[in-house]
């Protein structure tokens, strides 16, 4: 894990400024929740930290690195999207193992790690299925598995538990160290 800091971060679309100079410090291992009405910029903050949205001003740091202009893959973050964003053409195992594949990790090691994560999230019997064959809660756990498998510096969860049953939520909570 690592510290995260936003200093005077601004985001505007054309003339409309939507984030007006955000200053946020998050400590190493700290668990922070953004709460606010719909459309207030919670997701935009997360997407700027992940690198999916550019920032219009200010600076974002992860640890002691300034990441404001790095591409998402070089920021060492993982994200669970509000809509899960599972790869529909890949099996559950391939979805969870995709970050490792992109990191160039050998298939055998990938399989071991995927099995480990699937065990933690209660997805053992589902590894060969495709996202369309899963329930909403199962899809969400696959998205979480994809996020936790490579142990990044920062985890981002956009409305993470809106679809999980309480038991699965508790289990995934313990898996991510909440």
């Amino acid at each position: 894990m690592a510290t995260v800091s936003f200093s005077k971060v601004v985001k505007s679309y054309g003339d409309a400024e939507v984030i007006h100079g955000a200053d946020i410090e998050i400590g190493d291992g700290e668990f922070v929740v953004f709460v606010g009405p719909s459309g207030c910029g919670k997701s935009t903050l997360l997407r700027m930290l992940a690198g999916l949205e550019s920032i219009s001003g200010g600076e974002i740091r992860i640890g002691d690195r300034v990441v404001s202009h790095l591409p998402p893959k070089d920021r060492d973050v993982a994200m669970v999207f509000q809509n899960y964003a599972l790869y529909p053409h890949m099996s559950v195992a391939d979805n969870i193992g995709f970050p490792l594949k992109m990191a160039g990790i050998a298939p055998a090691e990938r399989r071991t790690k995927v099995a480990e994560v699937a065990g933690l999230l209660g997805l053992d019997g589902l590894l060969d299925r495709h996202p369309r064959q899963l329930s909403g809660g199962q899809r969400q756990r696959v998205a979480m598995g994809r996020a936790i498998i490579r142990q990044p510096s920062v985890f981002l969860f956009d409305e993470p538990l809106s679809n999980s049953k309480a038991s699965a939520a508790a289990r995934s909570g313990s898996a991510t160290g909440w």
């Binding site: 893959k73 973050v77 993982a78 964003a85 053409h89 995709f98």
Partner: peptide, 27 residues
Amino acid sequence: IPADLEGAARIDGCSRLSAYWHVTLPL
């Protein structure tokens, strides 16, 4: 094709081009 799929791929270690190749193109 939802843009979030490419976003997810880019966070998972893809460049724009490899996200296109691995995720968008097959779909």
